[in-house]
Structure formats: C-alpha cells, structure tokens
Design a protein around this nucleic acid. Structure first.
Length: 453
DNA sequence: CACCCTTTGAAGCTC
DNA sequence: GAGCTTCAAAGGGTG
C-alpha cells in the first residue's frame, strides 16, 4: 500500500490509502461520483479538528490546558471518588465500559451505505460489551443505521430530542467539576442538532430513573442481557475497573465475579479510563456483528481484516460520518476527563511480539532502512512498516503492496507482488488474503455475494 | 490463562 | 518534525 505523500493532507485517516488512488493510477469511481472529493474530505477532517479545538471556545487548547491545571489536583480526588463509587456500587459492581453512553441513533441516510450529503446527522457508535447496565432493558438491534428502526420513534431520528438540561451528568457518575457542565453551547451535545440525541442520549443513562429505552441501538444484546446487571450502577463507559486484564472487553462479566470483587476490595486501584474510540474502531463496533453474520466468522482477527477492507471501501461520506463520531467521542472524553492522557494507559498492555520482532530479519526497521534494503527510491517509494510493525509489514513496488514474509514465514529478500496482482486492499475486489496473514479468511464462506472480503 | 492476531486512527514518545 | 510505539475493540487461537 503506497504511503506516498500527496502533500494534501493529513486527513481522513487512511491518508496513505487515498494517496494511493492517484499514485497507482487507479480509478476511484466513488470519488468521482461523490460530492466529496479527496480534498473535501481532508478539509472536512481538518475542519473537524479545528472545530474540536476551536469551536468549543476561543481557544480550546488553552481552555483544556487551563482545565487541566484546574483539575490537576482534582484528578486524584476524582479517581478516589471513582473508587468510592465503585465500592459503593455493589462492592465491586463497578462495571467496565468500553464506550460512552453515546447514542447510535438511526441515521436516516445510512441504511447500508450512502449518506445524504445534506444530512449532517451523525450516529454515535458505541455499544457493546462494556455497556451500560441500563441498556439491559433495551432490545438489541443491529440495525443501527436503519432509517426507522422499530425501537426508535420515527420523529426522534428526524428531529432529535432535547435532553433535559436540568439533569447533570456529574450527578450520576464522577465527573470533574464542571466537566460536562462546562461544555459550552457551541460544543455541547444539546446544542448539536446534528447529534440527534434522545432524551436518554447522554445524561439520562446515568439517571437514577430508567431512561427511555428507545435509543440504545449501539449497545449489544450480549451485555444488555448479561447477568449481574446493576440497575443503577453508572460509571462512565470509558472507565474500566482496574481488573487484572485491562485489555479485555468482557470486563463486565468478569467483574461481577465474586472472587474479583473480593480481590478488588483487597486491592483497590484506580479505575482505568480508556481511550476514546477512533473512527475505525467505531466502525468496527458497528459492523462487526454484521460481518460475523454474513461471513459466519468468529475470529476477530479475520473479521478485522474484512472490516479493514470494507473501511477502505466506504465512501468519503460514510467514513466522514465515523470521523465525526470519533471526534465527538474525543470531545466528550476530553470534557469528562480533562486531565486524562493516553499516556495514562501506556504500559497497561504487555509488551509483546514487537519485542520479539526486534531481531527479526524480516523487519527492516524504519522505512528508510527498508528502502535501502530493498533498493527502493528513498524519495518516492513507500516501504517499511505500514505505520505499525506487528506482522502487517507491507512493501510497495510497482504499485503493489505485499508482505516481506512468505507464507512459510521465511524472510523475503525483496518486495513481492500480491499473489493475484490485485490492487491495494482499499480498492481491492474480493481477493485472497495477504500471504503474510496467518489468518486465512474463508472468502467463500458467504458464497458468491462477495460480502466477505 | 495471559497473550497473540488483525485492523485503522489518535496520541504519546524518541531522536 | 519524522518516525515509531502504544492503545483502543473483539474473540477465537495458541502455548
């Protein structure tokens, strides 16, 4: 996959992918068809960034720094408070949530794809395994994007719902002083009709009263119906109890185990505030169930490969939607935890194969070293780890993207083309998985409908 | 049972 | 500032 710089921009995430459209001379009909051009999207993302940084205040960055200063001392208290809440709630029923109680209100324009350019509504994706206990009352729905899902009043998705402002989220789960309350109208959720929050969209999930259950399509049934649901326990979804395994998603189920509660009581630790989900993660959460159903796959690695391809197959508008969602998530996360830093979670996961790969002969190291090793042009050829090492190490040559490792694991001394000569995955039709991938996605799993790729 | 795999994006770190 | 690393979700697979 080419990583050539287009000088255009940084944006829309898979910048390199978009760049490759041009560099490889491939026709991206979608781009031509869509009102969004590559530049448009770059502008969009740029605007999103700008908006998030500037729209909420004259100088959001400065504000945040100020908030951090203000709350720096609060952080410890805040976490202590979280601990206190945790203990208070069933003595260990402090649930882990992997997302915020955002709403995934149905998008009137995204039944399965296209987005109405005129629509500015954005669905919030967050659901699933670490979910709000109250969502157990909600029927699971996988049709997040259905125009008018049965569980949601039609007018709600169209008009949006004003959240009662009298309820303060901080009263339902620990918030830094003024965290949400300080959200200026310009960035507050209430003020964003583009975010069709329902009455239970943001705050009410944390209300002591049962929320309207009609607006949690993002939450999966697996947890909604999970055992041990606390009827009122309402920590923020990004807060994960300091269980022994931070990187697992079934915090909820695990944390309701008595022995873990006992352990936690013995060793109270600070809850972990997880990173807000990025656009792709939101997309994965949204589409995972669909892929699983379509492809009858269970392995997440394989599913993620498919989702990665589908992600690149999305139109600009579709991707923009998720970037917008991600921006909202970050924005809210920033508001809720102004002193939080991604650094806080560094080291939570084990250092793993990356260290193993340190001496790997298949890993050329930096792109510069890679180019040198394979005799590629340092200025124009893309080479090297595609922004992450792991096993996803692809090399570009002649517009092809492939792996430096052969199927038997032996190192490859030079870049190779894809087996089928297919273009990079972002434009690829259904094709065989990368030879480097240990996962062999059963492409024929679904049949000839081409869904599973 | 801890970790791997696999994906993209954001953010932090290093040089 | 470029390049690299870590983490976010997910759950079957692996040692």
């Amino acid at each position: 996959m080419p990583q050539l710089s287009s000088g255009g921009g940084d944006d829309l995430g898979a910048n390199d992918e978009m760049i490759s459209f041009k560099d490889e001379g491939e026709q991206d009909e979608k781009i031509q068809e869509n009102a969004f051009t590559e530049r448009d999207l770059a502008d969009l993302k740029s605007s999103l960034v700008n908006e998030s940084e500037t729209n909420q205040s004259p100088n959001a960055a400065a504000v945040r720094r100020e908030q951090q200063n203000e709350h720096r001392g609060y952080q410890e208290k805040h976490r202590e408070h979280l601990d206190g809440v945790s203990k208070h709630q069933d003595g260990g029923m402090y649930k882990a949530y992997t997302g915020y109680p955002f709403l995934m209100l149905p998008d009137p324009y995204i039944p399965n794809g296209s987005v109405s350019p005129s629509s500015n509504k954005v669905s919030v994706v967050q659901q699933s395994h670490g979910m709000h206990p109250l969502t157990s009352l909600l029927p699971y729905s996988n049709d997040h994007f259905n125009p008018s899902p049965p569980h949601l009043p039609t007018d709600m998705s169209q008009k949006g719902v004003q959240r009662p402002q009298s309820q303060d989220i901080s009263g339902f789960y620990p918030l830094p002083p003024g965290a949400v309350g300080q959200m200026p109208p310009s960035m507050g959720w209430q003020s964003q009709p583009v975010y069709p929050l329902s009455s239970c969209g943001f705050r009410q999930p944390y209300s002591s009263s049962l929320p309207n259950s009609s607006s949690y399509p993002r939450f999966s049934h697996s947890l909604m119906l999970g055992p041990g649901m606390h009827p009122t326990g309402i920590p923020h979804p990004a807060i994960v109890p300091p269980s022994g395994k931070q990187d697992h998603h079934d915090h909820y189920d695990r944390n309701i185990k008595p022995h873990q509660e006992t352990k936690r009581e013995k060793e109270p630790k600070k809850p972990v505030i997880k990173k807000p989900l990025n656009a792709f993660m939101l997309y994965m959460k949204e589409m995972r169930a669909k892929v699983i159903a379509e492809c009858t796959l269970k392995e997440s690695a394989a599913i993620n490969q498919i989702l990665g391809r589908r992600w690149h197959a999305l139109t600009r508008e579709e991707q923009a939607k998720y970037y917008e969602l991600a921006r909202k998530e970050r924005q809210l996360h920033m508001q809720l935890y102004p002193s939080w830093s991604a650094r806080d979670n560094y080291g939570k996961k084990k250092r793993r194969k990356r260290e193993k790969q340190q001496d790997s002969t298949t890993d050329p190291g930096s792109p510069k070293k890679c180019r040198a090793r394979f005799g590629l042009n340092q200025q124009t050829d893309w080479c090297g780890p595609c922004r992450r090492k792991k096993k996803c190490i692809r090399y570009l040559q002649g517009g092809r993207c492939s792996s430096p490792t052969s199927s038997d694991g032996s190192p490859i001394d030079s870049p190779v083309s894809l087996v089928d000569g297919a273009p990079p995955r972002h434009l690829s039709p259904p094709r065989s998985p990368s030879p480097a991938s240990p996962l062999h996605i059963p492409l024929n799993n679904k049949g000839a409908d081409g869904q599973c790729y």
